[in-house]
Amino acid sequence: MSAKESLARLLDDVDATPEATALRARSYDLLALPDGAAVVDVGCGAGRAVGELAARGARAIGVDVSAEMIALARSRSPESDLRIGDARALPLADGEVAGYRADKVFHELPDPAEPLEEARRVLAPGGRIVLLGQDWDGFIVDSADPALTRAIVHARADAVTNPWAARRFRNLLLDTGFTDVTVEAHTGVLTGGVVQPMLTRLAAGARAAGAISPEQEAAWTAEQRERARTGRAFLALPMFVAAARRP
């Protein structure tokens, strides 16, 4: 299994949780799309949101920089409009869409101002933009070793291109000229089997960054694996949802 396929499987598990399902629905509501309006889901991954937006009556377009993810999305939904493209240079005409959505994308981009200028370009006047993302310093994990947990969370955040992008959504949108900007915070609480692979990746990232030793990684991961096995795992993840209108 490739790294992209492994990530897609993990995202599938997370996206199937009630919290994630409700959060996606909230993002669709904030788009306030007229029936039949065009909307782009940037960083669409395996295409779940594209399908859900289409089911709501939108003309949904999925764009992802990864050809592998687009191929996976097409295998799951051959009828969907799925395109390879960069958030900073979308394969869309000026003013082509009434809605723009990006979920867990901006932390991967070194300069969020660039994709927001591109979002403004492809949105028609009055179009709506919705951004979703987690703050990478905000992972809350129950552990017997809080100091090591703090080191793991912060080290993983430091390895992210733009770990604080979500806390900057409001000001970034204002700086780009969007209006009617709102921000909501939604905290997902995960306690089931999906937690353990997420925390394994978190610890591996901290070890890869040199912030913890392999022995610390192994001990912490073993504790979290046991917590997951006994139903005692706990991960809370604050998500920010920003919405605005293109003048």
Rank of each mutant, 00 (worst) to 15 (best):
M1F: 02
A3P: 01
E5L: 09
L7K: 09
A16F: 01
A20K: 08
A22D: 15
A22K: 13
L30H: 07
L31P: 10
A32K: 11
V39S: 02
G43M: 04
C44N: 07
G45C: 02
A49C: 06
E52L: 14
E52C: 05
A54L: 05
G57H: 04
R59E: 11
D64Q: 00
S66I: 03
M69Y: 02
I70V: 12
I70T: 02
L72I: 07
L72A: 04
A73E: 01
R74P: 02
S77H: 14
R83V: 02
I84Y: 00
G85F: 02
A87I: 02
P91N: 03
D94E: 11
E96C: 00
V97D: 02
Y100E: 02
K104E: 12
F106S: 08
E108Y: 14
E114F: 08
E114C: 06
P115K: 09
P115F: 09
P115G: 09
L116D: 10
L123R: 00
A124D: 04
P125I: 00
G126P: 00
G126V: 00
R128T: 12
V130S: 08
L132S: 07
L132M: 12
D137M: 12
I140D: 10
I140M: 15
A147P: 01
I152R: 05
H154G: 13
A157N: 06
V160A: 10
V160M: 12
N162V: 07
N162T: 13
P163W: 09
F169W: 08
R170L: 11
L172P: 01
L173W: 08
L173Q: 11
L173I: 07
G177T: 05
V181C: 11
T182N: 12
E184Q: 14
H186Q: 15
G188P: 12
L190M: 13
T191F: 10
G193C: 05
V194D: 07
V195K: 09
P197C: 03
R201H: 12
G205T: 10
A209S: 15
G210M: 07
E215R: 10
E215L: 06
Q216K: 04
A218D: 11
W220F: 11
E223F: 05
E226C: 06
A233K: 05
A233H: 05
L235G: 06
L235P: 01
A236P: 09
A242H: 08
A243I: 10
R245A: 10
